[in-house]
Every structure is written in C-alpha cells, then in structure tokens.
Simulated assay, not measured.
Amino acid sequence: MIPYGRQDITQADIDSVLEVLRSDFLTQGPKVPAFEHAVAEKVGAKYAVAVNSATSALHVACLALQLGPGDWLWTTPVTFVASANCALYCGAKVDFVDIDERTYNMSPVALEKKLEQAEREGKLPKVVIPVHLCGQPCDMAAIHALAQRYGFKIVEDASHAVGGKYHDEYIGNGRYSDITVFSFHPVKIITTAEGGMAVTNDAVLAERMVLLRSHGVTRDPARMTSLPDGPWYYQQISLGFNYRMTELQAALGLSQLKRLDAYVAKRHVIAALYNKLLKDFPVITPWQHSNGYSGLHLYVIRLRLEQIQRSHREVFESLRAQGIGVNLHYIPVHTQPYYLAMGFAAGDYPESERYYAEAISLPMYAALQEAQVHTVVEAVRHAIEGV
C-alpha cells in the first residue's frame, strides 16, 4: 500500500530523541523552548508556544483571544472538525464561510457578503479562522482588510502549511493575523509525532497561551496575587489544561525542522510530476495562486464526473483496492451529525459540498519516489476507466 502521507525519520532524528532519553529531562526541559525559538525564527514571528497538538493550539489561541459565550467564530466547512470545535470548547457559537472554487480555501468574496449581513443582524464574528487547505495560503491580505473593517481577530489554521509562503514570506509571520497554528502530526510536512504550535507577535497573547497550556499555573512572583510562601510556591491564576509538548517531541521537531525547506521543495517536484502525468485525465489538478508557495501537505484531485462512467465512490474504492492509500480531505464540517443537530443542513455551503463530491487526496510525502507516482497515476487511469 502506498499511503497518502507518511513521516520521514532519519538516523539524526533517532539520535536526537535518544539524546533526550539519556538526559535529565523528558518533559519541561530545554528542548521545548529551543524548538519554539527555532520555529519562531524560521517563520519570522516573535513568540511561539509549543503544545501537544494543533487542536490544543487552536483551543488556547481562541481562549487567549478571549472567545467565549455569546461570541461567534467563523471558519471554512472544508477542514478537519478541530477548526470549528475549538469555538465550542470556549462556549462560543460556530458558523461557516463557503470556499473559493479554485483554491478550496475560504472565499473572501463570500466572507465579505456574510459580514455585511452579520453587521445588519448584530452577529459579527469575534474570531475568523481561515484554513490553508493542502498547504496553499488563503488570500490573507483580503481577509485581513475585512478584519480591519469589521473588527474581528484572525487565527490562521496553518496545520497544512508550515514551510509555505505568502507573498514570498513564510506563513506564520503574523503580518495578516493575530495567531497562526501549525500541526506536526506524522502525515504533516515535519513531525513531532503528535504536536502543534501557536505563533504570534503579541506578547500578551503568547503569555496567555503559555499559562493555558500548563493548568493556568505560574511560578512567576510578578503574576501572583500574594507574596510566595517560599521557593516551592506556585499559584493557579486561571483555568488551564495539560497541553504541554514533551522534550522527546521537541527534539524530534528540532531535527526535522532542519529539513523543512527540502521537504517542501520535494513535494513541489512530486506535484509537478503529478500535474504532467494527469494533464489529459478527466480530473482537475490543484490550482496554485501566484502569490503563494504551498506547503503541499496534500495533493487533491477533483473528478470530472460528467466525463467518467464511474462514481466518485467507485473510483475511490478502486484506488484502495489497487493498493493506493487515497483519502478524502475533508467531509464538510456542517454535514457532520453533531453540527446537523445544531441546525446546519446539507445545501448550506454548495461550493464546499461540490468539492466533497469530487475530491480525492492522492499520496503526497517527501519520500514518495518517482516510480511510485507513476504507479499512482496508472492506478487512477484504471480506476477511472473501470478496467
């Protein structure tokens, strides 16, 4: 089976983790701050807060922005459920903005129209989470301009996009958002096994997220409500969580980060080969905006079903049967039973639903070999032709 994504672990990665295992600190040691500093420096942000998953990063980001009951968070339907669930964790309400037909990211046109209506109804969002689907950056300049006009905060969900660029600058530099979130899951561009990070240029937001990731507990006398009883003293000054990243994960991340640019470049070589080989197939290959350099976490094709005698499901199942571990990213969040129970319905976001009816994620990872790409494309041919 050729999987749709997988980690690339080198001897240097293994050695870095073994070094930690032999050290005095398996958690709360020097590696996590070093990893935070390295990522912040790489993307051009002032602060970075490492956590145990991108889901946790989204949660503490929303809490840091003081999202709560009575507030609205808007995101895209075409994302993993975590991009929306983070609002519910905070007691806030969720709504969605349909996608652009070419980028599959949040449509700034649809966002502006929805904001105009929300302003009339007194239901403007407090936070908007654009998702850089597949690694392609959203139109952040347009979304940021709308934020300036309507007063909402922006959290970039860049779980797919570490190493990607927007207007020749690394995603995560904070030029167009308040906080950016990265994921380091094994199928992502670099990995810490499980793990995530939130980056920001705002010292107050960074301080809040640091507190939230570790039970809301501080050992800093300057933040305490009374003088310490002694050198052992700590205070819980807010309600937080155990969202810490381990030293083992941070060591792996530091090692992987050295190869980030090489990994993304290799993904572009693979995508170019896919584009060439699939050129005459009845599929839509990924469109890349000229102002962005995608992290290319995913390579998604859309089937031109009107030109194919087989259904979306038949093509997908044929590929799996041929040993190609395709996947589908994502089922629109508003169609999930949990969200249907809130009042969302099929048909609410037609562009997102059209995408879902046609999309298939082909294998994409840095270690994918040219011969394997040819194997995948030949399998696509067989799946479409039904032979």
Rank of each mutant, 00 (worst) to 15 (best):
M1P: 07
Q11E: 15
A12M: 09
S16G: 11
L18P: 13
D24Q: 14
F25N: 04
L26K: 05
F35V: 01
H37S: 13
H59S: 11
A61R: 05
A64E: 06
A64I: 07
G68A: 04
V78Y: 03
N85D: 12
C86M: 09
C90G: 10
C90A: 15
G91E: 10
K93E: 07
M106G: 01
M106N: 03
K114Q: 14
E116H: 05
E116G: 09
E119W: 07
V127A: 02
P130C: 07
V131Q: 05
C134P: 08
K153S: 11
K165F: 06
H167V: 07
N173R: 04
V181K: 04
F182M: 01
S183H: 08
H185C: 00
G195K: 01
M197K: 04
A198R: 05
T200M: 05
R208Q: 08
G216V: 00
G216T: 01
V217W: 09
A222F: 07
Q236F: 02
S238P: 08
L239C: 05
G240F: 10
N242P: 13
R244F: 09
M245P: 09
L252P: 08
G253I: 10
L257C: 09
A272V: 07
Y274I: 04
T285E: 01
N291D: 11
G292F: 05
L298K: 04
V300M: 04
Q307D: 14
Q309G: 15
Y330L: 00
T335V: 11
Y339I: 11
Y349W: 14
E358T: 15
A359P: 15
S361N: 15
Q369M: 14
E370D: 15
E370A: 15
A379D: 12
A383R: 09
